[in-house]
Protein backbone atom coordinates (compact mmCIF):
# COMPACT_ATOMS: atom_id res chain seq x y z
CA UNK A 1 0.00 0.00 0.00
CA UNK A 2 1.30 3.45 -0.83
CA UNK A 3 2.37 5.34 2.30
CA UNK A 4 -0.17 8.08 1.64
CA UNK A 5 -2.88 5.66 2.86
CA UNK A 6 -1.06 5.02 6.14
CA UNK A 7 -0.31 8.71 6.50
CA UNK A 8 -4.02 9.48 6.08
CA UNK A 9 -4.84 6.92 8.76
CA UNK A 10 -2.26 8.55 11.02
CA UNK A 11 -3.82 11.99 10.51
CA UNK A 12 -7.27 10.51 11.10
CA UNK A 13 -6.31 8.81 14.36
CA UNK A 14 -4.37 11.76 15.75
CA UNK A 15 -7.06 14.30 14.86
CA UNK A 16 -9.95 12.15 16.08
CA UNK A 17 -8.59 10.21 19.05
CA UNK A 18 -5.36 11.99 19.96
CA UNK A 19 -1.67 11.12 20.03
CA UNK A 20 -2.00 8.47 22.74
CA UNK A 21 -4.30 6.27 20.63
CA UNK A 22 -2.00 6.88 17.67
CA UNK A 23 0.94 5.60 19.67
CA UNK A 24 -1.08 2.47 20.56
CA UNK A 25 -2.05 1.84 16.95
CA UNK A 26 1.46 2.54 15.69
CA UNK A 27 2.93 0.20 18.26
CA UNK A 28 0.48 -2.49 17.23
CA UNK A 29 1.56 -2.09 13.60
CA UNK A 30 5.24 -1.78 14.62
CA UNK A 31 5.49 1.70 13.15
CA UNK A 32 8.03 3.90 14.93
CA UNK A 33 6.74 7.31 15.92
CA UNK A 34 10.06 8.88 16.83
CA UNK A 35 10.70 11.38 14.04
CA UNK A 36 9.47 14.94 14.15
CA UNK A 37 7.08 14.55 11.21
CA UNK A 38 6.24 10.91 11.97
CA UNK A 39 7.96 8.08 10.19
CA UNK A 40 5.50 7.15 7.45
CA UNK A 41 6.56 8.54 4.09
CA UNK A 42 3.48 9.24 1.90
CA UNK A 43 5.28 8.49 -1.37
CA UNK A 44 6.95 5.22 -0.37
CA UNK A 45 5.45 1.73 -0.50
CA UNK A 46 4.60 -0.28 2.62
CA UNK A 47 3.11 -3.73 3.14
CA UNK A 48 -0.70 -3.99 3.14
CA UNK A 49 -0.35 -5.74 6.50
CA UNK A 50 0.91 -2.53 8.10
CA UNK A 51 -2.29 -0.70 7.08
CA UNK A 52 -4.50 -3.46 8.49
CA UNK A 53 -2.49 -3.53 11.71
CA UNK A 54 -2.92 0.23 12.16
CA UNK A 55 -6.70 -0.19 11.91
CA UNK A 56 -6.66 -3.24 14.21
CA UNK A 57 -4.55 -1.31 16.72
CA UNK A 58 -7.00 1.59 16.58
CA UNK A 59 -9.95 -0.73 17.19
CA UNK A 60 -8.19 -2.40 20.10
CA UNK A 61 -7.23 0.89 21.66
CA UNK A 62 -10.66 2.56 21.35
CA UNK A 63 -12.97 -0.46 21.54
CA UNK A 64 -15.07 1.04 18.73
CA UNK A 65 -16.81 -1.23 16.18
CA UNK A 66 -14.75 -1.80 13.03
CA UNK A 67 -17.46 -0.56 10.65
CA UNK A 68 -17.87 2.72 12.51
CA UNK A 69 -14.14 3.36 12.53
CA UNK A 70 -13.81 2.72 8.78
CA UNK A 71 -16.89 4.81 8.01
CA UNK A 72 -15.46 7.69 10.05
CA UNK A 73 -12.15 7.36 8.22
CA UNK A 74 -13.94 7.76 4.88
CA UNK A 75 -15.72 10.88 6.15
CA UNK A 76 -12.46 12.28 7.54
CA UNK A 77 -10.74 11.88 4.15
CA UNK A 78 -12.99 14.47 2.51
CA UNK A 79 -13.75 16.75 5.44
CA UNK A 80 -11.75 19.97 5.77
CA UNK A 81 -9.31 20.93 7.06
CA UNK A 82 -7.42 17.63 6.61
CA UNK A 83 -9.56 16.40 3.72
CA UNK A 84 -9.64 19.72 1.87
CA UNK A 85 -7.54 18.52 -1.08
CA UNK A 86 -9.21 15.13 -1.59
CA UNK A 87 -12.65 16.72 -1.33
CA UNK A 88 -11.63 19.31 -3.92
CA UNK A 89 -10.24 16.74 -6.35
CA UNK A 90 -13.41 14.66 -6.01
CA UNK A 91 -15.60 17.70 -6.68
CA UNK A 92 -14.03 17.92 -10.14
CA UNK A 93 -16.05 14.78 -10.82
CA UNK A 94 -19.28 16.69 -11.40
CA UNK A 95 -21.34 19.77 -10.77
CA UNK A 96 -24.11 17.79 -9.06
CA UNK A 97 -24.07 14.79 -6.73
CA UNK A 98 -25.47 12.38 -9.33
CA UNK A 99 -22.78 13.46 -11.81
CA UNK A 100 -20.25 12.99 -9.04
CA UNK A 101 -21.56 9.48 -8.36
CA UNK A 102 -21.12 8.55 -12.02
CA UNK A 103 -17.59 9.98 -11.94
CA UNK A 104 -16.71 7.55 -9.14
CA UNK A 105 -16.55 4.93 -11.89
CA UNK A 106 -13.51 6.82 -13.24
CA UNK A 107 -11.91 7.14 -9.81
CA UNK A 108 -9.22 4.56 -10.50
CA UNK A 109 -8.23 6.16 -13.78
CA UNK A 110 -8.15 9.58 -12.16
CA UNK A 111 -6.07 8.37 -9.24
CA UNK A 112 -3.69 6.60 -11.61
CA UNK A 113 -2.99 9.91 -13.38
CA UNK A 114 -1.74 11.50 -10.18
CA UNK A 115 -0.48 8.57 -8.08
CA UNK A 116 0.15 5.53 -10.27
CA UNK A 117 1.29 3.52 -7.22
CA UNK A 118 -1.95 4.02 -5.31
CA UNK A 119 -3.65 0.94 -6.68
CA UNK A 120 -7.27 1.27 -5.50
CA UNK A 121 -9.87 -1.53 -5.89
CA UNK A 122 -12.03 -1.36 -9.01
CA UNK A 123 -15.29 0.59 -8.64
CA UNK A 124 -18.24 0.37 -11.02
CA UNK A 125 -21.27 2.63 -10.82
CA UNK A 126 -24.72 1.61 -12.00
CA UNK A 127 -27.53 4.15 -12.12
CA UNK A 128 -30.55 1.83 -11.76
CA UNK A 129 -33.08 4.65 -11.57
CA UNK A 130 -32.93 8.44 -11.34
CA UNK A 131 -32.88 8.15 -7.58
CA UNK A 132 -30.94 4.95 -7.08
CA UNK A 133 -27.34 3.97 -7.79
CA UNK A 134 -25.46 0.78 -7.02
CA UNK A 135 -21.71 1.05 -6.57
CA UNK A 136 -19.87 -2.24 -6.83
CA UNK A 137 -16.47 -2.38 -5.16
CA UNK A 138 -13.82 -5.05 -5.47
CA UNK A 139 -13.02 -6.53 -2.03
CA UNK A 140 -9.28 -6.46 -2.66
CA UNK A 141 -8.61 -4.17 0.31
CA UNK A 142 -10.49 -5.27 3.43
CA UNK A 143 -12.86 -2.61 4.68
CA UNK A 144 -12.54 -0.44 1.58
CA UNK A 145 -16.33 -0.50 0.99
CA UNK A 146 -16.91 0.83 4.52
CA UNK A 147 -14.44 3.65 3.98
CA UNK A 148 -16.08 4.47 0.66
CA UNK A 149 -19.50 4.54 2.33
CA UNK A 150 -18.35 7.16 4.82
CA UNK A 151 -16.71 9.15 2.04
CA UNK A 152 -19.84 9.12 -0.15
CA UNK A 153 -22.01 10.26 2.74
CA UNK A 154 -19.71 13.18 3.44
CA UNK A 155 -19.60 14.12 -0.26
CA UNK A 156 -23.42 14.04 -0.46
CA UNK A 157 -23.41 16.45 2.45
CA UNK A 158 -20.88 18.62 0.61
CA UNK A 159 -23.16 18.79 -2.46
CA UNK A 160 -26.17 19.51 -0.23
CA UNK A 161 -27.85 16.28 -1.33
CA UNK A 162 -29.95 14.15 1.01
CA UNK A 163 -29.12 10.47 0.53
CA UNK A 164 -29.51 7.08 2.12
CA UNK A 165 -26.38 4.95 1.79
CA UNK A 166 -25.98 1.34 2.84
CA UNK A 167 -23.83 -1.67 2.07
CA UNK A 168 -26.41 -4.20 0.93
CA UNK A 169 -24.70 -7.12 -0.62
CA UNK A 170 -21.29 -8.58 0.05
CA UNK A 171 -19.74 -11.71 -1.35
CA UNK A 172 -16.15 -12.88 -1.38
CA UNK A 173 -15.15 -10.76 -4.35
CA UNK A 174 -17.28 -7.63 -4.28
CA UNK A 175 -19.41 -5.41 -2.06
CA UNK A 176 -22.40 -3.38 -3.23
CA UNK A 177 -23.06 0.07 -1.88
CA UNK A 178 -26.61 1.26 -2.57
CA UNK A 179 -27.15 4.99 -2.77
CA UNK A 180 -30.69 6.33 -2.70
CA UNK A 181 -31.07 9.99 -3.62
CA UNK A 182 -33.85 11.42 -1.51
CA UNK A 183 -33.43 15.04 -2.50
CA UNK A 184 -30.72 16.33 -4.83
CA UNK A 185 -30.96 19.95 -3.67
CA UNK A 186 -31.78 19.38 -0.05
CA UNK A 187 -29.38 21.99 1.32
CA UNK A 188 -27.22 24.68 -0.21
CA UNK A 189 -24.07 22.60 -0.14
CA UNK A 190 -20.50 23.78 0.23
CA UNK A 191 -18.87 26.23 -2.18
CA UNK A 192 -16.76 24.78 -4.92
CA UNK A 193 -14.61 27.25 -6.78
CA UNK A 194 -13.04 25.78 -9.92
CA UNK A 195 -10.15 28.24 -9.72
CA UNK A 196 -9.26 27.02 -6.23
Amino acid sequence: MLGVVNKAIEHFIRATYGDRVWRDAAQHAQVSVGGAGGDIEPMLMYSDEMTYQLIDGLIQSTGKPRQDVLDDLGTFLVTPPHGRMVRRLLRFGGATFDEFLISMGDLNDRVALALPDLDLPAITVNLCATDRAVITVENRIHGFANVLQGLLRAMADDYGTLVFIDIEDCNDNTSEIVVILIEQNFAKGAEFNLAG
Partner: peptide
Protein backbone atom coordinates in the same frame (compact mmCIF):
# COMPACT_ATOMS: atom_id res chain seq x y z
CA UNK B 1 -12.58 19.73 -15.32
CA UNK B 2 -10.27 16.78 -16.03
CA UNK B 3 -7.47 19.17 -16.95
CA UNK B 4 -7.94 21.16 -13.76
CA UNK B 5 -8.15 17.97 -11.75
CA UNK B 6 -4.91 16.78 -13.28
CA UNK B 7 -3.10 20.05 -12.64
CA UNK B 8 -4.11 20.08 -8.98
CA UNK B 9 -3.60 16.37 -8.37
CA UNK B 10 -0.14 16.56 -9.89
CA UNK B 11 0.77 19.63 -7.88
CA UNK B 12 -0.22 17.80 -4.70
CA UNK B 13 1.72 14.67 -5.67
CA UNK B 14 4.76 16.71 -6.69
CA UNK B 15 4.67 18.56 -3.40
CA UNK B 16 4.62 15.28 -1.48
CA UNK B 17 7.54 13.99 -3.55
Amino acid sequence: PELLYLIEANQAAMQAS
